[in-house]
Design a protein around this nucleic acid. Structure first.
Lengths: 196, 196, 196, 196
DNA sequence: TATGAATGAGGGTTCATTCAT
DNA sequence: TATGAATGAACCCTCATTCAT
């Protein structure tokens, strides 16, 4: 397994840094090789081509990201708590790694459709986690039972994603994690004044 | 005003088609010229450079898009109705122009940071419309008065954007406009069971 | 004859200015047309192509230049006086028209071999004037009778040309005409200490 | 040092040939690469850009040219002998390399002002050699002591340059080196009949 | 495994010239 | 004569990928 060789992760880490610093389009393979401390040709012993590096970056980094969220939400008691944890973890992980935030929110989106399809594959387990929380909430009688689950999932993911992207575009100048409760409240309660 | 010359819009329309068909990065100026039925050099009588074509595509197309929404929401009675109209119009307009949907949701996002900043400028009036609806709703006593408006705007825009993107990525196979009421309900009521 | 029409000289003058200000390679036909106050297409009613403009610039301007020298040297008494006059006139005319100096010494030399052949044709009458002065000097017993006339002509023209070019390259900061006597002395007496 | 790599000189030599054969403006990088037997991209491993190729051509070729002259004039006894040697070497070197003669006398002059400034830098050591010979001649009592040295240098260089250019323009049909003594005599004695 | 020199395809842009009015 | 919008050929340079060592 190539992933166990030290140079594999070395190149992945270099790629994240290079992309974060230079932007997607100015991230030449030779720059990544230099930052990783290997020869250009060595890259191709570990990755099929440039796109493969980028997909792998997303695989590795989002894999950890999702694992963290899955782990953190597994022992919470109800769906509401789990949802808040998911939001908080989503924000916290990206807030704690600025390079990764820039790369996932801005740079990797500049890839072509084909690459984004592969990236979406990586995201699927995350979306499943969201779906499960919704289902649990319905079962627990906390969430309405007429929810269109894919739609809810899109709302949740879209909201989180847009919030992080705005924060990155504003140069990460404010506290992202601090917004978790508000975002959670919005998602669970909506805009409307509560009916008594 | 160049915009009144027929070739200007001819090139814009050709650009939308070429980008939708070939993807952002495979959209050579020469392809756009050919599709528009003009010589390569003619492009540069109407646009400063390639980026200018792309920004102009967005300007023109999103300009109309936003104008439609502003117009449609201007005579509604309350914020709730306006919000539903906004959602419906957002979906309807993109659903009725598949090329435009592909270009705005997938292709133009592949541009670099600088170009995306310009694109965001164009979007600002739309975000203002959303903000105003929220404020009206609060004033009317329909929406909660403790709402963090930028956050709410991000939720609304993020939800709509993610929903459209998913629909485009799924090859636009289902009815997008039909989801408007559900999306509206989600945004106004949230996930939770109503307290009595 | 096109040369008698006012626009012909208008374009020539515009060309000199544009070339002097922008340099040979940045002198587009459209710039010359604009400066001359005519449409691009009008240029082609008076000149066959761009090269024809440039050759004509040289024709007209050097024609006057040479006429002046021919006229000024025609009534001098001996070859020595004529040579001094030629040198002085050569320097004076270029010193009094900075645009022309830049154009003849720097910019027009950037043209290709073919154009430079045509330019050399224009220069021929000037070289004949030099030859004649040398022959007169020999006949008058002022100049040595073993002179290789083409070589002497090259020395004279080369010296004048190099002197003017240096002056132009040094941004015309010193007095060129004041060097005439020294240059004349050098050409007639050479470097050596006079034998008694 | 790139200059030690064989491809560097290979490309320089190819550039001289291509420029001599096609002229400055028709010398595409791809033509030079083809003649040098390398890929287009390889050029850019050794040169920053096209202009850098041209400056380097001049550097290398004129560098050798000047070195030869410096070396040959270093062991002569008096300034007169040195001057004759300089003239002879100047002519001999260009006469023995027709391509180089065309490139230096005709083609490289078609470059823009900026490039010509760089070329002039390369020539400076040659002009210093001329200056030194003049000064020596004055010190030795062979040359007049009232000489304006920059002017003399311009005369000498202008004469040699014009002579070579004429020879190149006449398709190098006559013996250039054979003219050295005559040119030397002209420069040292001038046109005038010697006063006894 | 590792290297890094070499490859060569690909595209945005300029500008001299034309021609319908 | 005069216009100026339209044309389209031409070229430098980058960079992902290969392969001899």
């Amino acid at each position: 397994m190539k992933k166990n060789k030290p140079k594999y992760m070395q190149i992945i880490e270099a790629a994240v840094e290079v992309i974060a610093e230079n932007g997607y389009h100015a991230s030449q393979v030779s720059k990544i090789a230099k930052k990783a401390g290997v020869a250009d040709g060595t890259i191709y012993l570990y990755f099929k081509n440039k796109e493969d590096i980028l997909v792998s970056v997303f695989n590795e980094k989002m894999g950890q990201f999702i694992d963290q969220i899955v782990y953190s939400t597994s022992d919470r008691q109800d769906a509401n708590e789990k949802l808040l944890t998911l939001i908080t973890m989503h924000f916290r992980q990206l807030a704690s790694d600025h390079h990764l935030a820039v790369v996932t929110q801005l740079e990797l989106r500049q890839s072509n459709k084909q690459l984004r399809m592969k990236i979406n594959e990586v995201l699927k387990p995350y979306l499943v986690v969201i779906d499960n929380i919704i289902r649990e909430g319905i079962k627990e009688g906390i969430f309405r039972d007429d929810l269109n689950i894919p739609l809810v999932r899109q709302m949740i993911f879209g909201t989180l994603d847009e919030t992080v992207t705005n924060w990155v575009m504003k140069d990460q100048k404010y506290d992202l994690v601090g917004q978790s409760p508000d975002v959670h409240a919005l998602i669970t309660n909506g805009l409307s004044v509560k009916k008594r």
